[in-house]
Amino acid sequence: MTANINQPAIAVRGLRKQYGDKVVLDGIDLSVAQGKIFSLLGPNGAGKTTIVRILSTLIRADAGDIRVAGHDLVREPDAVRAAIGVTGQFSAVDKLLTGEENLLLMADLHHLDRRVGRRRAAELLERFDLVEAGGKPASTYSGGMQRRLDLAMTLLGSPQVIFLDEPTTGLDPRSRRDVWQLIRELVAGGVTIFLTTQYLDEADHLADRIALLDQGRLVAEGTPEELKRQIPGGHVNLRFTDAAELDLAARTLAATSRDDEALVLQVPHDGGVHSLRALLARLDDASIEVEELTLHTPDLDDVFLALTEKKMEAVR
């Protein structure tokens, strides 16, 4: 039943979903290779959770051809369910049960042999640092502990494809790092991860490929590097001691923006040493005194803002 290695873990064509008159997903196409981390990035309300809910068989799409782990979502929902694991943004643990009971519940529902189930549960409690808390009701757990238990429950069934819907939202920085580390370990073990996030650095750190979702459409897709290359976001910030210097520099250089309050001038720049030397030479020639220079290389923030802003302007 293992899917062909060349086949994508998730293949979506023409996915549409609307609630009443409101179009939530407007023709999504995407493909996720096996054993990779795919990150869906977008602001709140972009439709990220709706996509996860559709791909994990919780809700039905209005249109679209969707295959997960090689199975058609509409025709074989149970085969899809058997291959996936889901950890959402709201904890999916039984708060009235203890951590261990939650894991044993999952073992029973995956129809594992009792002894195997106990062993798996013990392993996961150990791996997620929940051995001590294992006997306490999940309602007493901190946010980070509940998220860890949630992930452990998702892993108990050894899924091939894991959906993580904003897995680090609301976590403290340390728990966040732990979750990142875990995601990397999972992928090393051959699992495919579909990750949604609103944190650009999270996608940048983890994802092999990123898709940007904005108002129900994918506005860009590629590796983090490809996306950063798409926009000329690199620039140099020059700060001056007084307005006269700022004026002089603005006349000398092709500035993209200037801030008279902070006495800062922004000049486009490709990040290369050669062009930086040239820029400094021109400032020297004009005898302009620069108080401070900072270099800004494009990051996903620039990509995201550029792509969503473009759209806003088109609307106006």
């Binding site: 149970d78 369910r81 058997a82 709201f90 039984d94």
Partner: peptide
């Protein structure tokens, strides 16, 4: 509780 949503995504 979120657990019921989890049940619905399981086989």
């Amino acid at each position: 509780e979120g657990i019921v949503a989890r049940f619905k995504t399981m086989a």
